[in-house]
Amino acid sequence: MRFGIVVFPGSNCDADCYHVIKDVMQEEACYIWHKETDLQGVDAVILPGGFSYGDYLRAGAIARFSPVMSAVKEFAARGGLVIGICNGFQILLEAGLLPGAMLRNRSLKFICDQVHLKVNRTDTPFSHLFAPGEVVKIPIAHGEGNYYCPPEILEELKANRQILFTYCSPQGEVSDEYNPNGSLANIAGIINKEGNVLGMMPHPERCSEEILGGTDGFKIFASMIKWAKEASR
């Protein structure tokens, strides 16, 4: 399987994602510069974390206009797997590939910490290797991770089961006490209606091998790989 990792000016997690795909998952990986319009025949796209264009205007607002995003939109429309991590999630929102927007953390401070997430669905390309209701521990590092959407959009997300990950306690309790940034409904990650585009604020690439102190992020990439390989048979 071949992953394309999009690199914007200001991306700083692109090498982390490349390492996980190439060295940990033992799959093909390539970098795709933001000015490119050809996705080089990849099977999945990763929009990595960082500070694209310095987060000027607001996070992801300028990156949405990069030439590569037109190709990403077309790829997603054909059913291609797309995952946006942290700044990548912000870009997906700004580009309209996912609904909603990101606000500054309610603390108005940058947060770098470990958080627990509850896996709400196990029938998606990104989560089918998890157990139903499984709680995972994945790091976050962001200043604008406070997810917001209008009430009617939130109802759609719930009705369509698009809320894939929610912030929770180590035991799986979902409450404001365990919400690190003020996100509506404790949302940590959502998918589109078709289920092939995921945006999440936590960084699975930072916990995909034991040397980093945890492997809970491994299953997200492993799920994508298994799903794509089975779909191509």
Rank of each mutant, 00 (worst) to 15 (best):
L212V: 05
S11M: 02
A222S: 13
S66V: 04
K137Y: 00
A141C: 01
V68A: 05
N192Y: 11
P170T: 06
C86T: 10
I62F: 10
P99I: 01
I138E: 01
N196D: 08
H116G: 13
L129N: 04
K193F: 03
E156R: 15
I153T: 15
F3D: 02
G60S: 08
R104T: 07
R106W: 12
E27K: 15
G100V: 02
G96L: 04
N160C: 05
P151E: 13
M224F: 10
C30D: 09
G214Y: 11
E205G: 09
I153R: 13
A71G: 09
Y56K: 15
I91W: 00
K22N: 04
F130D: 04
S208R: 13
Y18V: 06
V136K: 05
S11N: 09
A77E: 11
V82I: 03
P180E: 09
I21A: 05
L39M: 08
E74P: 00
R233K: 15
A222T: 10
I85H: 07
P204Q: 03
V45M: 14
V42P: 00
V45I: 15
A222H: 12
Y178T: 05
K219W: 07
V24D: 03
A228Q: 14
C207D: 13
E155H: 12
C13T: 01
A15V: 06
I111P: 06
P9V: 00
A222M: 11
A29P: 00
G84P: 09
M102K: 11
M25K: 13
R64I: 11
P151K: 07
E27I: 03
V197L: 11
V82M: 03
S232R: 14
A95S: 12
L212R: 15
G49L: 04
L81E: 04
M102H: 03
A101K: 14
F165I: 00
A222D: 12
L97I: 07
M201R: 10
I46C: 05
E230R: 14
V42I: 09
N186P: 06
N12D: 05
F89W: 09
G54H: 05
L81W: 04
W227K: 06
L97W: 01
F218M: 15
L97Q: 09
C17W: 06
L198H: 03
F126S: 14
Q162W: 08
Y53W: 06
G60F: 03
G133I: 02
D14E: 12
G79L: 06
C13D: 00
I62N: 07
E230W: 09
D43F: 06
F51H: 06
R161L: 02
P151V: 08
N186R: 04
C112F: 11
G10H: 02
Y147A: 09
A131D: 11
G96D: 05
F75E: 00
H142L: 04
E210F: 13
V7W: 04
L93W: 04
I187Q: 12
